[in-house]
Design a protein around this nucleic acid. Sequence first.
DNA 1: TACAAAAATGTAACCGATTACATTAATTTT
DNA 2: AAAATTAATGTAATCGGTTACATTTTTGTA
Lengths: 346, 346
Amino acid sequence: MSKTKKDVTIYDIAAQLDISVATVSRALRDDPVVSDKTKKRVFELAEKNGYQANQFARSLRQQHTNTIGVIIPRLNSYFMATVIAGIENVANQAGYNLIISQSSESAEREGINVRTMFNNRVDGLLVSLSYLTSNLEPFEKFAKKNIPVIFFDRTPESSSFTNIRINNVQAGYEATKHLLSQGRRRIAHVTISSTQSIYKERFLGYAMALAEFGIPLDKSLIYLADLSMESGTDAAKHLLSLPTRPDAVFVVNDNCAAGLVIGLKAKGIRVPEDIAVVGFNDDPVSRIVEPNLTSIHYPGHQMGELAARSLINHLTGAGDIMLTQTILLRSDLVIRQSSGVPVPSR
Amino acid sequence: MSKTKKDVTIYDIAAQLDISVATVSRALRDDPVVSDKTKKRVFELAEKNGYQANQFARSLRQQHTNTIGVIIPRLNSYFMATVIAGIENVANQAGYNLIISQSSESAEREGINVRTMFNNRVDGLLVSLSYLTSNLEPFEKFAKKNIPVIFFDRTPESSSFTNIRINNVQAGYEATKHLLSQGRRRIAHVTISSTQSIYKERFLGYAMALAEFGIPLDKSLIYLADLSMESGTDAAKHLLSLPTRPDAVFVVNDNCAAGLVIGLKAKGIRVPEDIAVVGFNDDPVSRIVEPNLTSIHYPGHQMGELAARSLINHLTGAGDIMLTQTILLRSDLVIRQSSGVPVPSR
DNA sequence: TACAAAAATGTAACCGATTACATTAATTTT
DNA sequence: AAAATTAATGTAATCGGTTACATTTTTGTA
């Protein structure tokens, strides 16, 4: 096995140029205190020798890593991909690296990831919580060391951290109200049994809209799924087995809604004529399933950019910025065929 | 702003226990040479003080990071999510961290990512190439330093690195042959103009199948798309504008195939009666679009596990393991309604 | 009891950068 | 031309672990 060549260090460069490592170090970081002549010599030799700074030595000394940790539940949704793209945009621009890891919707795995990020001394953390996270204890370490943590989308119910999300109550309200305004009165709700407030809030919006129309909440119309496509199909079966069928369903997630639509159609139910459906997230799947899904759209890319930008501001910003804040992004109902409104075909 | 407390180091622990840092260091790593009594004392104090090892100091000294870099074109496909889950499984188990970044199908961005990974001294690299990568020069650094790089799925045409992929020629051949065996004779092909051999190979399989049936290759039936859903719809428009319509289409990607199906249906074409469609990847979308897509399935999770396992073997393994190899995974045609075979409804 | 071997611990160099402080060189000012 | 500034470079400590080698302590054996 061929011997790996040693890396070239600033010591090598200093020796070859017969100057001190300090000057080399400064030259490489373009410190104005170094003369242009010397800089040029250093740059050229560094380039020639393929010098690469050793990040560990640097991090060890500087006590920061220029790295941002990102922890998300799953990599496989279009929405998350969009958010991450937004984060990357901003982070790369500002010279930060990203470490991404997924909790796979497990609170335990999430805890491990948080710990790993902590050990790797990320400068800050961007997190969207798993379904099952119930305590924020793993994040306390960050708070204690004054390392900023920002939650986005699936944010904790209450905490001393910054949150970036949409108004889920309102979104749930709008989705439900839309169905009500279509004349639907028996509206089911498919959601997940989760500690995540985001789903509780959507439910709350749903309940509020019903209340506004004087419709009592019917527990039998609430179906708890895991929000997979398959669980949507199961939800369809369940809802159809009810003594009195619903005439509409509000699902908290498009994938699941798509499964639901497929399940309904398989049983000969017409969507939206017999049962109208509204989803959530405006995933591309909403434009593939037939009929296309009415859904709640909200800006993932922007959310990612905002989260990253806020974090980096915390990191570089002067002044006391550890204060709690919640940033609310706007969400919109996108009306398509599944909710029973005639949409002009293009 | 509250002052950040200094981290506790092995020096603190050593001082408090009145032993040397060397012993503390060894104890913490459970070195058998340290007595159980001492270990216990060290562990307890470390726990009590919330000691966290400084990874930089460790990496700086040990010259490795226990980190694996993963570079993929996009995070937003189901297939990739599956692969990554597989990689994570193995990596976590073996105590490796992951740094994931996406090239966004840009060769330039990919190059930057490779460089970043290199600077961060990942122990190894797992890569699926962008559409546009034409030269492997950025990876040479890794080769030179004897850091293992493994390509998966979208592997380079030829290189001295290890590749893990499927037999794309055969898969393309099977997809096309399936359509031929359904009696289709005018089969279009939607693919991408890419330097990636994987698409060239699928095309080759397509061409081989046609040749086997004595059908000359008709260039007008080849449509170059960007493989997005929208581009699939464009492809539909194009194919329908042809003087003689195709009676089948083989699309190299399910998303694009879904868009194609939607486009065809919008023009009143029946799928599969008028035009049969076969996709690629067995993405969940294949089970949502109507009719469901016949597609090529291959095991993403397994591919990820295998890639990670191979890499870690390279890393820990004894002996000379820098030799080139290509691992071929099995792929299967999954027949659904879109290709015109009656499928018993369940 | 004395000595050899094994077990446990300690010393100090090292990994590669950064940076406060000191020193020397080049310009300006008087 | 000497003194005062300013610019450029150098010295050496530091970040927090790891580990080769040395030393001390314990245990086992003759």
